[in-house]
Design a protein around this nucleic acid. Structure first.
Length: 885
DNA sequence: CTCCTCACG
DNA sequence: ACGTACGTGAGGAGT
């Protein structure tokens, strides 16, 4: 006979946290909630002898309940960090127990348990639901009993339908009505004010349900009648919120709940880490560590400080160390605050604080080690580390492995690549959260030196343990070369570009800003005049009210929160009212003013007159870079007004020139190569205008018959192809009927049959492998390609088509950057590479190198990777970025 | 902190 | 039938 035990993880861990006195292990990790939870688990295992077991967790911040009622669970106290740091520990503990755990974005633990208990009930399986939440009583049935915590953690009271009848005089489903009437302060569910348990029960005993009560208000007396009538809607909504959703998509999850008992060695290691000595004894778990002992063992290293060692001892320790970690707080590496670093040999970790690093006497051996190209170093986020150190006058050299880059390559879509997340994914001993060590926001402070040293040492040690695991995973995924020969060298090149920065002429921006200011205020007063009132044009909400309510313009597109007022909508509205054009113009200028003039001015360094962007190498799922603080990859160019911003980007040395080179049609060339489509390859080999050529073939005309409109449409089709085309997307873009768009696409595929075959194949391949790759074996997983949900699946299919193209283009320009950097160094050039904008590189060049760079840059870019079609790069130059066109 | 809007490739 | 083009970052409003 099967026996299921379903545990509401969030509810029980909260219960345990508040029921148990504070408890920490020797490394400062809070363990009281995990301890309480463990005792609960042991009791359940002993008493219930379950065949299946599951701990369900809430996932994400919002659920479907927030859609109807945004204030759901509002007003809750934030989870204390002493508790939140125990969540990952609990999850690790459950793995050690061999107990299944589950969470699903958008649903709460209740809903998961509700669904599984329904399945169990339908199958006639005896089931116990464990929670601290009375709501769960609604799940009780002939086969499902509810164990509610009473006091402490292990003291529970069991309810079956008869027990609920006895206690409340209600059926399980009436529990929902009970809450609908009385509400629940902890979830911020209102119910009917003034109705508590007593009144609610009285009402339910008389009328049966919320609906029954509302239908019979005439029979209620006095003040209560008013209250009920006044809060009818609240009662109905509250009932809805209290209803556990029992149809969560849990396809065949039941099989995964099987519980086969725990492995004594694994559990023993976990308990040792948590220092649950009494439990080890109680369960008589084995002493020695198992196979995973290394991964799970408590700190086996000794922590020393730089000032506690002689220079010789320090040098000797560093000579046998490779793994290190640099702590700097702040997202912008150019301004991040260096806190300290830790270097580990395995047995010993030396910690160097900011003050110690700044003390030349103490830090000389450390500085020497960091700058020694011959001393191999493995770390985490070395790109940031290199920048932080370089602003402190230390040049980081000799880096051989970056755990962050490796993790990114292994799964670029993983939402968190923090060291803590890597540690957790690899089953290593959990370390304290940064928040618990430093606090956050205004409360940030560097803790006492021993605490800080312990934390940094734990991180360096985590890096040391991660390196061999990541190295092997890279090898398995055929990405070692990509990592060591492309991404890691690129990180060094990027750091150099960022540190160098690009000069921005503030007075150019200020003049432009003054001009914009004049025009913006003119537009503002014109808009107010047409509207007949003043309002905040920047507020989509207020603007929507003015346009669609006051002026009565037709609204056809909505956003989640109201009317859409985006450019697409406004362009359609232009004929209806003069104000619309003015708003569009206002928006255009306001964007330039706030984001580009004011935004950029704020980023200029007083001392150098330069801006220093930071390229993020581990963000984009396709392998592209992204740029931050400021973003220099979205400086206006399409419209002349905005393009003028580029006049502010100038060389940093007198007499020098800005030189820009961009790849021509790189994505379509990549597509021609990987699809092998003969027609497309020929077009590029003969260097014809690809959009004109596409128009000729799709419309079946000669070159001189292709008019501007045909070329425009062909260009849109080509873009669509790269994005993973759909008739809907193309019709939207070209503003044509969907049928016509479908016809275009069909005609395109008739002509470019190799492209059609590629699109079909890559989707099939993604479905078979679960991932797609670029030419350099960069990988992106697409689990949703098998989703039954049409939208999710379609999105994954388009991604499967697009990622190899966009990603290979990214690979190519990255290769070009590494090669170009080497050329500049090998040839001893003074020219500097400054920016990358996906298919463009920007340099500043002294006069005497201009002629050379005009040929060298395109040569290197075109030669970055050998394809079946030529790569082409166009060069331009001028006194500023605007002129380099 | 999320949403909307808009800048780029 | 479903309802989208692929990839980013930043500013302002309103919660």
């Amino acid at each position: 006979m099967d026996k299921w035990v379903l545990i509401d993880g969030n509810s029980i861990i909260y219960r345990a946290f508040f029921a148990m006195p504070p408890l920490t292990n020797s490394s400062g990790l809070h363990t009281n909630a995990v301890y309480g939870f463990t005792t609960m688990l042991l009791k359940l295992l002993e008493e219930e002898k379950p065949t299946h077991m599951l701990v369900a967790f809430d996932a994400g911040k919002t659920t479907f309940r927030h859609e109807g009622y945004a204030e759901y669970k509002g007003g809750r106290e934030k989870t204390p960090s002493e508790l939140s740091e125990q969540f990952p520990v609990l999850k690790e503990l459950l793995r050690s127990f061999g107990i299944a755990q589950y969470e699903l974005p958008g649903y709460e633990a209740d809903d998961i348990i509700g669904t599984l208990s329904r399945l169990a009930d339908e199958g006639g399986v005896e089931t116990v639901v464990v929670s601290g939440d009375k709501d769960m009583l609604q799940l009780a049935s002939d086969h499902v009993t509810i164990a509610l915590t009473r006091k402490g953690v292990t003291d529970v009271e069991r309810y079956d339908p008869a027990g609920i009848q006895e206690r409340y005089g209600l059926t399980p489903l009436q529990i929902i009505d009970l809450k609908g009437l009385m509400g629940d302060t902890s979830d911020n569910i209102p119910g009917i004010p003034g109705v508590g348990e007593k009144t609610a029960l009285k009402l339910l005993h008389e009328f049966g349900s919320v609906e029954g009560v509302l239908a019979n208000t005439s029979e209620i007396k006095g003040k209560m009648k008013e209250k009920v009538e006044e809060h009818q809607e609240s009662a109905i909504m509250s009932k809805k919120l209290a209803t556990i959703y029992r149809e969560v998509p849990l396809e065949n999850k039941a099989d995964e709940l099987v519980y086969n008992g725990y492995d004594e060695v694994t559990l023993g290691d976990m308990f040792r880490k948590l220092e649950f000595k009494s439990l080890i004894e109680r369960l008589q778990l084995p002493e020695a560590g198992g196979a995973d002992a290394n991964a799970l063992a408590v700190a086996t290293y000794e922590v020393v400080t730089a000032s506690g060692l002689t220079a010789d001892a320090l040098t000797e320790l560093l000579a046998t160390s490779e793994s290190f970690y640099i702590e700097a707080i702040g997202d912008n590496p150019h301004q991040a605050r260096f806190i300290g670093l830790a270097v580990t040999s395995g047995e010993r970790v030396v910690v160097v604080t900011y003050d110690e690093l700044m003390d030349a006497k103490i830090s000389a051996p450390v500085r020497k080690w960091l700058q020694d190209a011959q001393a191999p170093k493995k770390g985490y986020d070395l790109h940031k580390a290199e920048l932080v150190l370089s602003w402190l006058g230390v040049e980081l050299r000799g880096t051989t492995f970056d755990a962050l880059l490796a993790a990114y390559l292994l799964d670029p879509t993983e939402s968190s690549q923090t060291l803590a997340a890597l540690i957790q994914r690899h089953g290593l001993a959990t370390i304290q959260t940064d928040e618990s060590v430093y606090g956050k926001g205004a409360k940030f402070q560097v803790p006492a030196s021993e605490v800080l040293a312990g934390h940094l040492a734990a991180k360096a040690d985590a890096v040391r343990r991660l390196v061999p695991m990541l190295t092997e995973e890279l090898e398995t995924g055929h990405m070692s070369k990509l990592c060591y020969e492309l991404e890691q060298p690129l990180a060094v090149v990027l750091a150099g570009m960022e540190k160098q920065g690009i000069k921005v002429n503030a007075s150019v921006l200020e003049d432009l800003g003054a001009e914009l200011e004049k025009n913006i205020s003119q537009y503002m007063s014109d808009i107010y005049m047409h509207a007949g009132m003043e309002f905040n044009i920047n507020s989509p909400k207020q603007l929507g009210e003015v346009l669609f309510e006051k002026l009565g313009l037709p609204a056809w597109k909505k956003t989640k929160t109201g009317y859409s007022t985006d450019a697409e909508v406004l362009e359609k509205l232009e004929p209806y009212h003069e104000i619309v054009k003015l708003i569009l113009l206002y928006r255009q200028l306001a964007k330039l003013q706030s984001t580009y003039v004011e935004g950029l001015l704020k980023e200029i360094r007083r001392d150098t007159g330069k801006v220093h962007t930071f390229y993020r190498q581990t963000i984009a799922a396709t392998g592209r870079l992204s740029s931050q603080f400021p973003n220099l990859q979205n400086i206006p160019i399409r419209l002349e007004e905005g393009r003028r911003i580029r006049k502010a980007f100038v060389p940093s040395e007198p007499g020098w020139t800005i030189l820009a080179a961009d790849y021509s049609q790189i994505e379509l060339r990549v597509l021609a190569h990987i699809s092998g489509d003969e027609k497309m390859k020929t077009a590029f080999i003969e260097d014809t205008d690809i959009h004109t050529k596409t128009a000729m073939d799709v419309f079946g005309v000669t070159a001189d018959q292709v008019d501007a409109n045909m070329r425009r449409q062909a260009k849109a089709v080509n873009f669509g192809i790269v994005y993973g085309i759909s008739d809907f997307g193309l019709s939207n873009n070209l503003n044509i009927a969907r049928k016509d768009a479908a016809k275009f696409i069909e005609q395109y595929f008739e002509v470019f049959q190799g492209v059609r075959a590629y699109m079909d194949n890559i989707v099939a391949q993604a479905r078979a492998d679960g991932f797609v790759t670029t030419l350099l074996e960069r990988r992106r997983y697409l689990p949703e390609i098998k989703a039954s949900n049409f939208n999710l699946r379609s999105f994954a299919e388009r991604t499967a088509m697009n990622t190899p193209i966009q990603g290979t283009a990214a690979d190519i320009i990255k290769l070009a950057m590494v090669n170009m950097d080497k050329e500049i160094r090998d040839r001893g050039l003074r020219s500097r590479m400054l920016l990358q904008v996906h298919d463009e590189l920007v340099f500043e060049v002294p006069a005497e190198e201009l002629e050379l760079m005009k040929t060298l840059v395109p040569e290197v870019m075109e030669g970055a990777l050998k394809l079946d079609v030529p790569l082409k790069a166009d060069v331009s130059f001028g006194d500023n970025w605007y002129e380099a066109k």
